[in-house]
Write a protein that binds this DNA or RNA. Structure first.
Lengths: 242, 242
DNA sequence: AGTCGCATGGTACATTGTACGAGTCAATTG
DNA sequence: CAATTGACTCGTACAATGTACCATGCGACT
């Protein structure tokens, strides 16, 4: 009767979370050589990693279940044992890219500024390394790794002396700033690569947009500098201590 | 020989822009009653307006060319005379939603703060009214209406006394803040509507995320207040004058 | 041996975007 | 008047996609 898949499907091994090994019924085939299986066995990790590769290489529309299966050397439908549906692949890929490994030294006394800036810049860099993550991030719910970063942010700010009543504003302000900066940045990358559509505006910005033109807003490519300046400014406003 | 469509297609009437009426070869059929055409004639305006309706009603995946044509009472392929492709519809719909009609009074002497806050809040409100605009915004190039807002922002800041060398940082900081705040907000709306996927995290935030839990970060629904506080803070830091 | 649960994947189908080309009708030109 | 043109409409067809359904294989346990 080939037991209902809906049951099996809802029981995913571990969606990027780890669990304290509740004896999952004996380890499955970790024998010597792979017996006569054509390739390595499929796994959630392999699927997610390959999905990220594909997304990096071909963008958000470049990820199709067929292509993904091809790269994995498996049949298309095999993926569906490990994953609910395509949206699930997106969620997993997104979260996997947003993982934070922590700041290197963090012998923190007064280093909270450094730690916060490090985490936020690492986050921004991660998103820019995988530009497809930005639109995904704004259309899906927040995954565990995002929450972890929020938690770290809150904890650090709190340790730095931000009062509880100001904490939420502080967290969200920093958070929003980074999100926005990253989006803006990727928008510009897009605009550059597809000049055809926007040349009408970028070509004659002086006519309709004199101020933008004068400040060279659209051509200022010191993104990192601008990002840091705004961030410092925010931090200065948020945190009392010098 | 039914002239090549590629020629006709590139000649769109006016893509939300206006042009000084270069005599487009005599006005086409603005006769009395519609002769025996089944419905009103198709037009770019109607297409865009209906697309926005559809997007509002069914979300980003709810917009299909067939459904759009159905709502317009036309054949699917008729759309393609007015629009390049589906992405074109997205671009047009997005830009149409982001138009700014200006602040009401603006008898500005010291009112520059009011004007900026008004424009930014209007922008935020517009995006929240059409949540599909957020992911679109972060995956497409900036349209004319966005540039107009940037221009207005820059001009107002400049008039308020922000030095040219600080202008870019000021513009981008405000911009990024609003973008980020809006994204965050829509993420939460998503998370609320699809508790199933995230309940594991939202249900037990205290275990893994004690600080978030303590500050009730995820349950603080005074979005407007938090938004305003952060914005005021930014403005205070950016503009010297009190 | 048989049974069960994990895991793979082939086939099939509905839905999508859109290329192609034929059709309609009004204005223009002969 | 007839012929032409060019703006506009739309039916058909096709390729690409997500995924439901089902058959199969394999290792472990009884």
């Amino acid at each position: 009767m080939t037991a209902k898949r809906s049951g099996a499907r809802s029981k995913r091994p571990r969606p990027t979370e780890f669990q304290p090994a509740p004896e999952p019924r004996g380890e499955p085939h970790l024998s010597l050589e792979r017996p006569l299986s054509l390739e390595r066995p499929l796994s959630l990790e392999r699927i997610v990693a390959t999905a990220v590769e594909l997304l990096d290489a071909r963008g958000i529309d470049g990820l199709t279940m067929r292509r993904l299966a091809d790269r994995l050397g498996s049949g298309v439908m095999s993926l569906y044992w490990h994953v609910d549906d395509k949206d699930g692949v997106f969620d997993l890929a997104l979260d996997s890219v947003l993982e934070y490994r922590g700041s290197p030294q963090m012998n923190g006394a007064e280093d909270w500024r450094v730690e916060i800036v490090h985490m936020l810049e690492d986050w921004r860099a991660g998103m820019l390394r995988h530009p497809w993550s930005v639109p995904l991030l704004s259309s899906r719910a927040l995954g565990p790794n995002i929450l972890s970063r929020l938690e770290l942010l809150g904890r650090t700010l709190s340790r730095a002396g931000v009062a509880d009543k100001d904490l939420n504003v502080a967290i969200w302000s920093l958070w929003n700033y980074v999100m926005g900066a990253t989006i803006t940045r990727t928008s510009f990358d897009l605009a550059d690569s597809d000049k055809a559509a926007t040349q009408q505006h970028h070509a004659h910005p002086g006519e309709r947009y004199p101020t933008i033109q004068r400040s060279r807003l659209l051509f200022d490519d010191d993104w990192v500098g601008t990002f840091r300046k705004g961030l410092d400014l925010l931090l200065a406003g948020l945190a009392p201590g010098r």
